[in-house]
Design a protein around this nucleic acid. Structure first.
Lengths: 224, 224
DNA sequence: GTAACATATTTGTGATCACAAATTATAAAT
DNA sequence: ATTTATAATTTGTGATCACAAATATGTTAC
């Protein structure tokens, strides 16, 4: 792992201790597709990149391993977990069953300020889609979904759903070469409409459809 | 934490390294209700009880903290996470949406040997219910559900559901003083019938009903 | 050139250490 | 007896060390 990882990561915050900083940084790198499946790391290598000892890296990486985002199966090497069809199918099941419910729980906590934020994110998302910028698409898609989900501060479902995203996000990179992102925006718009109307059923449907579409796109790319 | 924890835990296996042994042991203690909400530990205390250094305890406990089973909120003390109504409601949502699906995925992998095992577990469960033995009820109820779930080796849903059980299991102890366990056995029987008939819809309904009933019992106890 | 063997390096694991921050125990004062 | 100030202890965190196992590197033999 190269030294310039630090430039792709939020600077160290005094609010978080070292292992939290490393954990959040690794999450960010995974969620933005910076960690491509296949490349492998070592504790010492990551530690050198962050300029810390192996100790906080061990805690952060071990946590991500237990969350299924990283793997240490291959002897003494840490890698982004490989995807399989059964993993993918189960991720789909979990997302379809949890995220619509989570968005309904969050709906009542979405105030006008957050709504404005979501509309703005969606605008950026539309632009990323129209220009085919997959990196921005990944980033704003994440921000849009969790902009909704985080409104409710759900103590159980929110962390659960976060681990699901850690598992499939690295594979968005595979979609980069394809031009199938044009049809995705409708569901975000109908989600916003549902939030404005405070219509929980419509929001549930919109999130459900969005997941279905996005995951189907991923599935096609995985099987090519 | 007292030294006699070792007697309540599986002896160390050469297949697992130290931190896995500690993690599995802590899981067992949590799932069997040995760790009651409220009591608090320290890394060094647990390490002394297990006769190991703080290192593997840190890894095991930190993992359980990230899984929501343990808490370190109160300054420098590790405790079994407190339950709240919103946590409970979300656990219910997650269980009802994941476990029936997980059992359907597992159904096709349940062979006659496993079916016999489930029937035997259910017999022990019936006896525990009739004698009001809450400890055995907790143990065999876990074995019954995961006896089904584990058949499919689901790489995503199974670990996810395990973390849900880690979160609510400690609170079964609160039910100990009540006599409301008599009505639970029917759903296990209908689950077994569904497995024999290879009827996935019936299995889904049985698991759903069982969760609903068990969690409702827990919810009443939490609110008394 | 290639396979077989020996050597050197790197790896994760578990233990230990240093240390600041927090907790608890002790003593003093009213 | 209760509060307040001070000292002693304990805590999690991050760094470092020892070590066996695994990997990589070099060397020899055919």
């Amino acid at each position: 792992m190269s030294k310039d990882i630090l430039s792709k990561v939020k600077p160290r915050d005094s609010k978080h201790n070292t292992n939290e900083w490393v954990y959040n940084s690794l999450c960010q790198l995974i969620l933005t597709g910076e960690f491509v499946p296949g490349i492998s790391f070592t504790f010492r290598g990551i530690a050198n990149s962050f300029g810390v000892s192996t100790m906080p890296v061990r805690e952060a990486a071990k946590r991500l391993i237990s969350e299924g985002a990283l793997d240490m199966s291959e002897k003494r090497r840490i890698t982004v977990s490989q995807m399989s069809q059964s993993k993918f199918d189960e991720l789909m099941i979990a997302r379809l069953n949890l995220e619509p419910q989570l968005s309904v729980l969050a709906l009542k906590h979405i105030d006008s300020k957050r709504l404005k934020l979501l509309i703005n994110i969606d605008k950026n998302l539309d632009y990323a889609i129209s220009t085919g910028n997959i990196e921005d698409y990944i980033k704003y898609n994440y921000q849009f979904h969790f902009g909704i989900y985080e409104a409710g501060l759900s103590p159980v479902l929110l962390p659960l759903v976060r681990t699901l995203w850690l598992r499939f996000s690295p594979f968005y990179r595979i979609v980069a070469g394809r031009a199938g992102t044009q049809t995705l925006k409708d569901f975000h718009h109908s989600a916003i409409d549902a939030i404005i109307a405070k219509d929980s059923v419509a929001l549930e449907v919109a999130i459900h459809s969005d997941i279905l579409e996005g995951m189907e796109m991923l599935n096609e790319s995985l099987n090519e």
